[in-house]
Write a protein that binds this DNA or RNA. Sequence first.
RNA 1: UGGCCUAUGGUGUAAUUGGCAACACUACUGAUUUUGGUUCAGUCAUUCUAGGUUCGAGUCCUAGUAGGCCAACCA
Length: 561
Amino acid sequence: MSEEVKSLNFIEHIIEEDLRSGYEMSQLRFRFPPEPNGYLHIGHASSICLNFGLGLKYNAPVNLRFDDTNPAKEEKEYVDAIKSDVAWLGYEWDTECYASDYFQQLYDWAMELIKDGKAYVDSQTSEQIASQKGTPTEPGSHSPYRDRSVEENLRLFEGMKNGDFKEGEHVLRAKINMASSNMLMRDPVMYRILHKAHHRTNTDWCIYPMYDWTHGESDYIEQISHSLCTLEFLPHRELYDWFLDQLVSAEKLRPKQREFARRNLSHTVVSKRKLLQLVESGVVAGWDDPRMPTISGLRRRGYTPESIKNFADTIGIAKRENVVDVSLLEFHAREHLNKIAPRVMAVLSPLKVVITNYEEGKEEWLDAENNPEDESAGYRKVPFSKELYIEQEDFREDANRKFFRLKLGGEVRLKNGYIIQANSCTKDNKGNVIEVQCTYDPLSKSGSGTEESLRKVKGTLHWVSIPHAITAEVRLYDRLFTDETPDGHKDKDFMEFVNPDSLEKVTGYLEPSLKDAQVGEQFQFQRMGYFNVDKDSTKEKMVFNRTVTLKDTWAKLEQKE
RNA sequence: UGGCCUAUGGUGUAAUUGGCAACACUACUGAUUUUGGUUCAGUCAUUCUAGGUUCGAGUCCUAGUAGGCCAACCA
């Protein structure tokens, strides 16, 4: 038993240090705080796995909190999708929370800040406020409204809340420091007027708190010990702490914000805005298009929760810029699917093979192993007959000895079936091979134990019996973007790198055992890749998605030539 | 150019906090294989640069360099 010491990431180091210096294990509490303005993507998966993983590790509760402070962008549809994605990944949240549940508390605290002279109502336009912000190298200047009396501020803020003003007429600002080197500390806006219905509070409120005045306070209300977010929020930490300083009480736990680098995936984009653009421009069919890096897209594509979690686990958490290669995600898909996906045979690019010495009209049902990685998966029957399909690329009239497939005069084994030899072929008037005539060795049947059946032939092909085959639409996916970092170019828009060939639809010929496959069910089409049944399937026509190909060393060999 | 963050194989992450640079992926060898899959074995590093402290530096110090973030009534 080699007890493998799992190395800690820097967040875990921080927590371990906190535990050593006074935190009780029972005080630990985390949260995953998405804004319901889009679907969750693979980048969120890292954050989900981090927070919920920490919860599991320390036996601490993890809240699912919707950061719903901007009714202009948020919808219930997104709330529902986010919940189902987190649940699908296999995590259970302790409490389902909404920042909107805290609107009253936040308002009350804001009133306190005004009374303390720490906040004021500014009646300038957003342009005026922006122009007074200064620049990173020059300090800002004070608003003419900065020194309004407490009474006037109170009266105006209540007026804002009561709907006495139009959008943009006033905002509430924290009175901090217009000369701070941190732009966020230059009297940040805490509230703005928005006469928009909110998906939960409807028209109860027409002032909405800003992110900075919501997040830390929500963490405090929920008594989150470690509030983990991405690196771009690092400058917000000073503000996060300033707001907390105004209201934290000594007997309660004070949350800390810590930041980690967002994970970027090669050959894709991971930004809700850009994903939305892909959806709205029609480049993809929706948020759950199998080419999308969204959780729902990956699920539909055939990724398992295990593969996504293992992926998140191996890429880890750190603070530096990164672009993780998609091949690592694909590796985890193959690794898990290899263990669980039943093997079947399907031909996606058919070439007819006729077994000339096989009796016309005869059929045999052969035994086929469902999964060599899992003995308990058992066996099924596949039909064999005189006329079969093999893959076009598995036959060549003539080829060198590195080609382990069918060629004229050569032998090959049909998986789970017989050894056949190609004798001749016929072509259409363009010179394309349209049929191969073969003979089979009746004594070479797989599993029969005869001397002939044990004979080694170099190649083994998958195949399907033409009269028994069922057809289905098979969707083959390629990377959505041709460039490794589509949004990493200053002079070019990421949309310029959209791969026009990211989806190819073909008709597949499948062994008949597949006819009862259910939506979402996963299979390995032997030698072709992993596939699952798409939700677009109907009784008349099944639809399969290719999740990922198998590793293909032959294709690489060929490419080199 | 003000402030802040980061820098370890092609990629991502480690290194018991100053003690033999490790793990995974990719790529490439080879073995096994009724999937050119799987499995197994192997190969791939001047730890951004230059100095310094130390018996000893990826780790500490100094100075550079490169990349990133910050001026929404978005989150």
